[in-house]
Nucleic acid binder design. Structure first.
Lengths: 349, 349
DNA sequence: GTGACAATCTGTAACGTTTCAGTATATTGC
DNA sequence: GCAATATACTGAAACGTTACAGATTGTCAC
C-alpha cells in the first residue's frame, strides 16, 4: 500500500516541473537520498552523488522554493526597504542593480518593500519580520538611533544599513565618507579663494547629516573660512524651496561665495537660486556637489563635483547581508567608501 | 493516536506565529472550517464566520505564503523585469513606486528581476515561468515582435508590457503616446519658426521608435518642415556619443534649427553638443524634450519639455497585470497616456 | 562464525495550506 | 415516522522539501 502510493504518480505525470520525486524515480533512489546527494552530503556515495547531480542538471531540476521555505523557513529573499517619497532617484535604480549583481548567482530574489511618508518607517520592517518574508533586509537613511536597526537586532534578523547608526550596537553597514566629502569640499573651495561658505546638508534626522556638518565645520576652522547659515532647508526639501532660499541668501550682502551640496538634484536648485539672484556660478560663487551619475558637468560646466557610487553601495550592502546570513561576524561586514577628488570639469571666467 | 497527534502541539507551542491550527484550537473548530471561514465560504455559518474572522484579526493571523504557494501554486508575486544597463534611471525608480502604490493593499510582493546586456532578454522570463516564481510579470522596452510577450502568451502567464507590440496578439500594455509627442513637438517647433528638424529617437528595435519616427515625419510634412538625418545615435547611446554627434551635425552649414529628443538625459548631451559647436539654445536652435522628472527647466530655461509620468505607468501596468490575474479580458487592460502640452519655461533672446 | 561498526541508503513525519470526500445534525416533504 | 435533503462542519491527503530515526549491506577484528 505504501509502495503502491509511492510509485503511482510519477512516471506518468511528466508535464509538471521535475521534483525530488522525479529524480528519485529516474535514479531508482529514495527522495531522501536524492535530496542529500544534491547538497553533497558525505554519507552519500561519491558515485551516487555524481549520478544524481548529473541527472538533475540534465533535466533542469530546480528546487521548489515554496517547499524549501515551508520546510526550513528559509525564504531565499532579500528585501530592500525604500521610502517612496524621499529616496534619491538614482539611488533606487543604482542600488537595485548593485544588489542584483551580487545576488545574481545565488538563489536569492530581491523584493522591494516600499513605505511612504505617512507610515511609521518601522511598519515595513515589522511586517517583514513578523511574516518571515525575508532572510535579510537592507535599509537606507540610517539614523543615529535607528529603531529599525534596534528592532531587527533584537529579533536576530540579518540586515545591513546604508549609512551608519550611533547606538553602540554593531551591525553591517555601508557608508560613504561624508565627513571626508565635506572637508574636501571646503578645502577645495578655500583653495580657490572662497571664504564664506554655506552647506546644503542632508536632512537633520539622518546620521550622515551629522557627519557632513562635522566635516564642514571642522574644515572651516582648519582653513579659516566662515559659515553662512543655511540650515532652514536640506536636500530633502523641494526644488522650489531650495531655489527660493538660495536666492534669498544670495541677495544679502553677506552672501556666501561658496556652497557645498550633498545631492545633485538639490544642486540644480541651488544654481537656479544663484542665477535668480543675478549672480554667476564660477565668478561670484562656486559650488561643490556630490553626484551619483555623471551629469552635473553638463548642467553647468563650472560645477565642482564629487562622485558617490550607489551601485557599489548596493553591492556592498548585498554582500554584507549575505555574509551575515552565512554566519559571518556582523562587525566584519562594515565598509566605508572614500570620496574621490573634487573634480573640476572646466573653470569659466 | 491521530487525535493525540492533532492536539498535542498547539496550546503549548505559542511562540511561533499563529497558523490555521492555532485558530482552529482557539475557536474549537477544525482547520478546514477555519480556512473556509476566513475566505467567506457560504457553507460556513454566518456567525462562525464572523467569530473566526474576529479571532484571526485579534491575534494577527497572516496566512503563510509558503503554505499557500506550495498547495495552490499561487505565489502572490509580481515580477518587474528590468534591463540593468539600459533603463532610464527615473524610470526604474518611478515605475517601482507606481507598482507599489497599486499592490500596497493586496497580498502581492514586488520582486525585481534584472538582466544584463549580455543575456538573452528571454532568459529572465524563462526562469520566471519555468520556476513558477511569479503570478504576473511586467516587462519594459517592448518590441514590435516581442519574443518575451509571445513566450508568456504561449504559456498563459499574465503579463503587461510597457510599450506596445505589433504581432497581431492582444495583451495588456501601457504606453505613452509617442506619436502624439513627436507630432506636437514638431508642430511647436514649426510654430516658433523652426524648419530644419532633427530627431533623437529611441533605439531602433523598440516599438516606440517607430511611433516616434512616424509622428515626427508625419508632422514634418504637415507643417512643411524638413528633416536633418540624425539616426546614427539614439537615446540609448552614451552621453559622450550623443554629444559628439550633435556637435558634428551642428557644425555643418545645413545644420538643424530644431531638435526633438525622446529622453531627458540625452537632451543634456544634445545641448552640450550644441554649445560645443558655439551655438546658443533658444537663438540658433530649439529643443523639445521628453522628461520624466521636472528638472530640465533648471538645466537650460530655454528648453521645451513634454512630461511623461512613469509612476503612472507603473500603476497602470500593475493594475493591468492584477486585472489579468483576476480574470479580466487582456484586451480591456490596455492604456495609452496622452502627452500634455509642450511646456516653454521661459524664452530667451 | 559472530559482534561491532562503518558506509549507504530509506521511509516517515512535518512545515501550513486547500481540496476532496465525507459525517453529523437539523429540516423538510409526505 | 421515515426517507430525502440541506446545513454546518470535519479528517485525510497532497503540494515539495528536509530532519530524524532507522534499515540494509559489507568489512573487520578476534
Amino acid at each position: 500500500m505504501d509502495r503502491h502510493q509511492t510509485e503511482k504518480d510519477d512516471e506518468t505525470s511528466a508535464p509538471g516541473r521535475p521534483t525530488l520525486k522525479t529524480l528519485a524515480f529516474m535514479t531508482g533512489l529514495g527522495v531522501t537520498t536524492v535530496s542529500r546527494a544534491l547538497k553533497d552530503a558525505p554519507e552519500i556515495g561519491a558515485e551516487t552523488r555524481r549520478r544524481v547531480q548529473l541527472v538533475a542538471k540534465q533535466i533542469g531540476y530546480r528546487p521548489n522554493r515554496a517547499g524549501v521555505r515551508l520546510r526550513t523557513g528559509k525564504t531565499n529573499v532579500i528585501s530592500l526597504v525604500l521610502n517612496t517619497e524621499r529616496e534619491i532617484m538614482s539611488f533606487v535604480s543604482d542600488i537595485i542593480y548593485g544588489v542584483s549583481e551580487v545576488i545574481a548567482d545565488t538563489p536569492y530574489h530581491l523584493i522591494v518593500t516600499p513605505y511612504s511618508r505617512s507610515q511609521d518607517p518601522l511598519d515595513p520592517i515589522r511586517y517583514l519580520v513578523e511574516t518571515g518574508s525575508a532572510d535579510g533586509v537592507i535599509i537606507s537613511r540610517a539614523q543615529p538611533n535607528d529603531p529599525r536597526a534596534r528592532y531587527m537586532l533584537e529579533r536576530g534578523i540579518p540586515f545591513a544599513t546604508h549609512g551608519r547608526t550611533d547606538m553602540g550596537l554593531v551591525h553591517p553597514y555601508h557608508d560613504f565618507d561624508n565627513y571626508a566629502f565635506a572637508t574636501e569640499a571646503v578645502r577645495h573651495l578655500a583653495g580657490i579663494g572662497r571664504r564664506r561658505l554655506a552647506l546644503l546638508a542632508p536632512p537633520v534626522g539622518l546620521t550622515y547629516h551629522g557627519h557632513t556638518v562635522n566635516g564642514f565645520t571642522d574644515a572651516l576652522s582648519e582653513v579659516g573660512a566662515s559659515e553662512v547659515p543655511f540650515n532652514t532647508v536640506s536636500i530633502d526639501h523641494s526644488i522650489e524651496q531650495i531655489r527660493m532660499r538660495t536666492a534669498q541668501v544670495m541677495r544679502r550682502q553677506d552672501r556666501p561665495d561658496g556652497f557645498v551640496s550633498s545631492a545633485a538634484a538639490a544642486t540644480l536648485a541651488v544654481v537656479a537660486g544663484i542665477e535668480d539672484a543675478g549672480l554667476k556660478l564660477g565668478r561670484d560663487v562656486d559650488v561643490v556637489s556630490k553626484q551619483s551619475s555623471e551629469l552635473l558637468h553638463l548642467f553647468r560646466r563650472e560645477l565642482l563635483v564629487v562622485n558617490e557610487n550607489f551601485r557599489l553601495a548596493g553591492s556592498e550592502l548585498a554582500r554584507a547581508v549575505l555574509g551575515w546570513i552565512g554566519g559571518a561576524e556582523p562587525g566584519s561586514l562594515q565598509s566605508l567608501s572614500a570620496p574621490g577628488e573634487v573634480l573640476a570639469y572646466r573653470r569659466s571666467g
